[in-house]
Amino acid sequence: MAPLRSRLRAALLAGGLLLVGGAPALAAGEALHPPDTKFSFDGLFGTFDRASAQRGFQVYKEVCSNCHSMRQHSYRNLRELGLSDAEVRAIAATVQVNDGPNDEGQMFERPGRPSDRFRSPFTNEKAARAANNGALPPDLSVIVKAREGGADYIHALLTGYSDPPEGVELMDGMNYNKYFAGRQIAMAPPLAGEGQVEFKDGTTATVEQMSRDVTTFLAWAAEPELESRKQMGVRIILFLTILGGLTYAVKRKIWSDVH
């Protein structure tokens, strides 16, 4: 039974190491755990910083939307971020939407309306891959919920590009990013330098700032219900706590003759 015993020892050892040492040294290809970033929407009372989310939309529109779709969103949803009706209409009208058929049976292009979904950069997956060296830029509608680490991860990923360390050979068309699984990502650094976008409110567009803003925007996009959800939660739990106290008092009164 020697193999069993040595395996048992290995098991105990591994267990012990986990308890004592925390995460063992990471192999070269393994992704780093994204650091905890403070966001306006964290915590029990968190809300979306509207100014940041609006700037984030601008980053999405000017940068990310060249490659990434957001199929679950309509332009009208932007009103929730504090944009006015007129602004939403103007934004929607900047894209051309395929519509039809008309009375003659023809498809036609028309300017977008607030009720239209965000226009996708590619008509299908094949086109998206063809334009991106075979890689597929995922839809960003719920990306914050679709990744371990959520907003922390997205922010870490967007700011986590660097030159590969000594001895790491990048595959063709790949970029080194220590937060991405496998550390080689097909997306070239989308936020490359200060001033890549020009924020209307005068905020300096550093990479860190653009990344935070677009992450805030994507977090809102993934969970537009977050604010009302948390508000409702606080009220309901307060209510239940009070009701629980009263119920407990009633229960004690009813049971007082039993003990």
């Binding site: 939660g233 739990i237 239940l240 009701l243 629980g244 229960k251």
Partner: peptide, 20 residues
Amino acid sequence: AKDSVGLIVYFIVFAALVFF
């Protein structure tokens, strides 16, 4: 009466999950 107390504790745990 006793089950009601438990029920409310259950609802609090449930609500914590759903809302937060």
